[in-house]
């Protein structure tokens, strides 16, 4: 390997060192949680109280404020997982492997929430809990991909090897991401088309849109919090015999 002479390289090298990461995430956590809670409170107040009922769907549409951000997160986190997995695969950076696997459980949770809330919205609006159409089926495949990644990681005892296997699985599964995104345009489906990403002619009123965007940003912060908590656990498990962990144990920690 080559040396890292430049300050930028040194910065990343230091950031990726486990003890530094462990200490830094502890310091950042209260700030992240604070911002998340403020965004969440504003988003929920705007979405559940201030926004008017939909002229067709009544109050049932309010599920949008968790359904749509969850669905966005399910795709976003998968891409993060695949990219960090690839970085871990190529450069063998331990922290990238840990971020990849720590993202999997959060991503699986958001996929599950998107599916369940969609179902709870579909029942009163479409008259059915579930249809085997392109959007719903490809999102279900995404859940299985996440579960496959988690299962594969747990099945292999050596975690460096497990991370390699998981990264390859995650990269292969990336093909599903554009399928989910374009499914409502490529196939005729019960699922409604995009409302927000049509910037030229948005089909959603601003009083409904602002809370939705607030919730989307709140969920981004939530992902960082949950992923970091999982990563701290994963890091300790992997580094349990390292010197910095031994030092951590002798100091009284809150």
């Amino acid at each position: 390997m080559f040396l890292i002479p430049d300050p930028v390289g040194r910065f990343f090298h230091r950031m990726a060192s486990p003890p530094h990461f462990y200490a830094l995430t502890e310091k950042l956590m209260p700030w992240l949680v604070g911002i998340f809670l403020i965004l969440l409170a504003c988003g929920l107040y705007g979405g559940l109280y201030l926004a008017p009922p939909d002229y067709q769907q009544g109050d049932s549409y309010r599920i949008i404020y968790i359904h749509v951000p969850s669905a966005w997160m399910s795709l976003f986190i998968y891409i993060v997982m695949a990219v960090t997995g690839a970085i871990g695969l190529v450069w063998r950076i331990k922290l990238a492997e840990i971020v990849a696997i720590s993202s999997a459980s959060v991503g699986a949770s958001f996929t599950f929430i998107a599916l369940v809330t969609g179902s709870l919205w579909g029942k009163p609006m479409w008259g059915t809990w579930w249809v085997w159409d392109a959007r719903l089926t490809s999102e279900l495949v995404l859940l299985f991909l996440y579960l496959g990644v988690i299962g594969l990681y747990n099945a292999i005892d050596d975690k460096r090897t497990a991370s390699k296997a998981v990264a390859i699985l995650a990269l292969v599964g990336v093909v599903n991401i554009p399928i989910i995104h374009y499914s409502v345009e490529w196939w005729s489906t019960l699922h409604q088309g995009p409302t927000v990403t049509k910037m030229d002619k948005p089909s959603i009123h601003v009083t409904m849109l602002v809370p939705l965007l607030l919730m989307a940003v709140a969920f981004k912060f939530y992902y960082v919090i949950a992923m970091l908590q999982r990563a701290r656990l994963e890091l300790l498990q992997r580094e349990r015999t390292a010197n910095w962990v031994k030092k951590l144990l002798t100091e009284p920690t809150p």
Binding site: I113, K123, Y222, A226
Partner: peptide, 20 residues
């Protein structure tokens, strides 16, 4: 739509809390 809306929010809350 109380049942559908609050069940959706309830499940979301429980799952997200458990992840932390």
């Amino acid at each position: 739509y109380a049942f559908y809306v609050w069940t959706a929010y309830g499940i979301c809350f429980v799952v997200l809390l458990a992840n932390i």
